[in-house]
Design a protein around this nucleic acid. Sequence first.
RNA 1: UGCCCCGUGGUGUAACGGCAGCACGACUGACUCUGGAUCAGUUAGUCUAGGUUCAAAUCCUGGCGGGGCAGCCA
Length: 625
Amino acid sequence: MPDDKRSQDSATRDQSLQGQQDQEQQAERTDFLREIVQQDLASGRVKSVVTRFPPEPNGYLHIGHAKSICLNFGIAKQFGGRCNLRMDDTNPTKEDVEYVDSITTDVKWLIDGWADDLLTLKPAGATPGVSKTSAGEDDFYLPGLLPADTAGQAVEPFYASDYFEPLYNYALELIRKGKAFVCDHTAEEVDAMRGSTDTPGTESHYRGRSVEENLDLFERMRAGEFPDGARTLRAKIDMSAPNIWLRDPIMYRIRHASHHHTGDTWCIYPMYDFAHGLSDYVEGITHSICTLEFEVHRPLYDWFLDALDLARVHPIQREFARLNVSYTIMSKRRLLRLVQEGKVRGWDDPRMPTISGMRRRGYPAEAIRAFCDRIGVAKRENTVELGLLEYFVRDDLNKRAPRAMAVLRPLKVVIDNYPDGQTEEFEAVNNPEDPSAGTRKVPFSKVVYIEQDDFREVPPPKYHRLSPGVEVRLRAAYLITCTGVVKNPATGEVVEVHATYDPATRGGDAPDGRKVKSTIHWVSAAHALSTEVRLYDVLFTVESPDNVPEGGDFMDTLNPESIEVLADCKLEPSLAAAAPGARYQFERLGYFCADPEDSKPGAPVFNRTVTLKDTWAKIEKKGAS
RNA sequence: UGCCCCGUGGUGUAACGGCAGCACGACUGACUCUGGAUCAGUUAGUCUAGGUUCAAAUCCUGGCGGGGCAGCCA
């Protein structure tokens, strides 16, 4: 479903164009993860590919998640597989349905028209089916449904919490095998006994409990007989392992807390390391792709899978380096702080690096995908320049955004020799990059607004725009020459410019072939739509707000000028019909998007998505320095 | 300083023992009814020291540098 109200044929054109690009890119793009998948397929270790995107519903998805989504869906797409959306919700105290909903929306939006056909969900309310293995053990399996197979039935994302019962079962099995035990040590004791990086830990006093006692205690843990923190279930591995995570890690903790998805059914909750790999297994995941910090957990991921006698092929975990983008932060905790402390208007504030924020700001999903494709994937720490993301936004919007004229900081121009009360209409091209976008009518009259930046009483070197005695073109209208200015006597500020037009230049071309150095945009004062436009800049003033120096706080680097609200901009009247979410290029300024929340019928409010490249600003800056 | 991972132009990423390439950026110029777009060009890189080899970004060893790991978080 297109996210805005573009015409049907325009949306179709975008899709076929995108499809071609995807094919081209995928034919050549490869990375170490795709090579692993390729080899697994070639060797027959797996016969098809199933990946998963497993966010914890404790915050909104951001551009870093977009990288992961594009990777997981991209791999599935490239190798004819599928990708499950799973809420990794094993901690009841941190998660919330608000996040489940936003995550689902954001994933669908990001992959729409690209990989939405392989987004695997499951029937609403479905839990894993059980079958007996040849060894007589329970095998839990919950395959998902592709959109093509749902046939109108209600579906929902997968939830790790839907596997609490199977997981409990697997835990029991581990206890029976003597590979897990109930431990009564306090959190502090466990912590102290874990040892340190260079000294081995100490075994739990309860490590030698009998299978029967462990079974009994674990069942009573589930039954709610013990308070929070009283006991844990631990894997029995090796307290002197050099890898800390192998030192009898905790599998279950007691939490008498309501869970957003399972309610009060449980008071024991599985830990990530125990739950994740087995959740992957239950869903039939073949390749479990995560970020680098989980690399040291990989032996544990494999240990749980190997410790059980599982019937089907094991998933494998592989890790890649998370995305960092300059001038922004990726930590969900910190993003939450921005929201809670009111530094932004919400998770979807257009300044946020969240998917919902970028969507609201006007970033097309295609641009975000192209960005993720271009940055590649590897294992080294990386910080991608924000400019690259913006490049893809401009690149995409340039091809599809209809042009319009808008004056952000109006300066009145009176064309003295133009007849009072006369109005005429000019035909303006909607998109010079796309002839099929057609033209529109723009009204013109004696008084027009131009951008304050487009007039200088004393033009600096190389300034080609309007100034006294200079002739410029009003885009698609007439050539005009500045004849004088009116100033505010108190401040000396130019409040009005006077000009004359050449009637022979109707449409913008001079019959005598004379050239002008500059074309500027304008809006007829009598016809202008006055509305609010919001300009955005980076949220932080430093390249790496995540790495603030000792004693500092990332909040100290917030950009006080990250938003500028212009209350009375003058737009060409056709923009009154802008649908919420519709994207335009305001000529010579940038790309703008009608805010989906604040726009009213006939009264859109615009967000600046990204500026156009500004060569003049560069020249001016160079001249100043 | 225990274990694990990683070092290629300013940034990101290729090259899988055989010509160090691509994209963004930066800089020139052309073109232009958007100082946009487009087009042409320039700039700039294998952390380091040894070793193996006809040949090393790639394999081996050491050094240096960066990152991760000691939640009953994920």
